[in-house]
Structure formats: C-alpha cells, structure tokens
C-alpha cells in the first residue's frame, strides 16, 4: 500500500465528510424529536395500554447499545428479505435511539411540573391536551433544555457508530485517511476539532436559551 503525507487535501476530505455527520445528526434530531414527542404523549395520557407500550419501547431501546440497534436494522432486516441501504438503516436506528431517550427526558420534565398546576388547570375545565399545551408544556420546556441539548450532543458523537454498517461519515473517513497516512495524531486531532465545533455551539445556545427563558418568566 502506498503511503502519503497528511495534507490539505485530507483536511478537505474530512470537512467534506462532516456533511454526513451533520446530515445524520439532523435526521436523528428531527425524526427523534417528532417520534420522541409522540412517545412522550403516549406515556402521559391516562390510557394504561398506551403507557405500557410506550414505556416498553423506551426501555428496550434504552436497554440496548446503539451499535446493536444498527446491526439489527441493517443485517436483521436484510435477513428478513428487506434490503435496506446503509443510509436508511442508519437513519432508522438513530431515530429510534434518539426518540426513546428524548421521550424519557421529556416525560420527566412534564411530570416534574407540580401537581397543583395540573389540578388548577383541570379544575378550570381544561382537557388533558389543553392543559398540556397551555399550562404544563410551556413550563416543562424550560427545564427540558439542558438535558435535551446534552443528549443531542451525545447523538452527534453517536453518529460515528454508523461506520460499522459501512457508512462513511466523519470518523470512518478519518480511519481511512489514517490507513494511508499513518499520522493518527494529526488526523484524529483534526476530527476532534471538527466534533467540538459541532457540539460547542449547541451547548452555548442551550445556555443562552435557558437564560432568556428565565428572564421572560421571572422578570
């Protein structure tokens, strides 16, 4: 195998590969957020069966490694005769993973709103969806921001695992470049900087949002 030096071209390749990491993360946020919200509601509605189903789903996903979920979707569905692309498998597994964790985080935030708030609003005649929407969720959103953002940062880093099913995102690209340059320190330093520059804005945005929401309600 031919060795070459780690150079500008490689850095460009890495930046280029960052697109896939970003794309996967956005898919996971959007899909995971949507389904996570749905599972949160199913967990909270006063309907036992839905609570159990939703909670079973959350526990199964939370109780198994993301790596395994990727294998199950990619190889498992192939065995059942469904040929899924690495893209589809990565998206499905990341959405499932993200939705379960977000659902659990959000359920906790909603149930952290004191019981008197629920009782006062239902005593005024508000139905369950009305009181969730107007009274409970606006208060829950505020406390949900730090854990939500903290978890999304985990998801960005978690997208690296999709390399095991052949998806060439940032980490996988770095491995390939390292194979031909044998300069692990340089290669992995660059992707560390890239991951950091993806995650850092999120955490600082979270801090700013939190501060703003605190100001607007407490004055």
């Amino acid at each position: 195998m031919l060795l070459r030096d780690f150079g500008h071209g490689d850095i460009l390749l890495l930046i280029y590969a960052t697109r896939w990491t970003i794309a996967l993360s956005l898919i996971a946020f959007a899909g995971g957020g949507l389904f996570g919200f749905a599972f949160t509601i199913l967990r909270i509605l006063p309907i036992r069966l839905l609570n159990y189903l939703s909670s079973a789903y959350i526990q199964i996903i939370q109780g198994t490694p993301l790596l395994l979920q990727l294998f199950v979707v990619f190889f498992g569905l192939a065995i059942l005769g469904w040929d899924v692309s690495a893209w589809t498998a990565a998206a499905v597994a990341l959405i499932a993973y993200t939705s379960a964790f977000l659902a659990e985080i959000w359920r906790g935030c909603i149930q952290a709103i004191p019981k008197p708030q629920w009782e006062a609003s239902s005593s005024l005649g508000l139905g369950i969806f009305q009181l969730l929407w107007y009274v409970i969720m606006p208060q829950a959103i505020k406390i949900s921001i730090p854990p939500t953002v903290g978890f999304l940062v985990q998801v960005i880093k978690g997208t690296a695992l999709t390399s095991v099913i052949g998806f060439v995102e940032l980490t996988r690209t770095a491995q390939l470049i390292n194979n031909v340059t044998l300069e692990p320190f340089a290669v992995y330093s660059v992707i560390a900087v890239i991951y950091f520059s993806l995650c850092f804005p999120l955490t600082s945005l979270s801090r700013r949002l939190e501060r703003r929401l605190n100001v607007s309600s407490a004055n």
Binding site: P116, E119, A120, S121, G125
Partner: peptide, 18 residues
C-alpha cells in the same frame, strides 16, 4: 362541563407562573 360550573380556589393559589 361539570368543572365549568364549579370554581375551586386552593390554599396555595396555583396561578400559572409563565
């Protein structure tokens, strides 16, 4: 519907803080 006919006020006010 029933609760529209019955008002209740609690010891701890329970206003919506937001």
């Amino acid at each position: 519907l029933l609760r529209q006919k019955v008002g209740i006020v609690f010891q701890s006010y329970n206003l919506f803080p937001h």
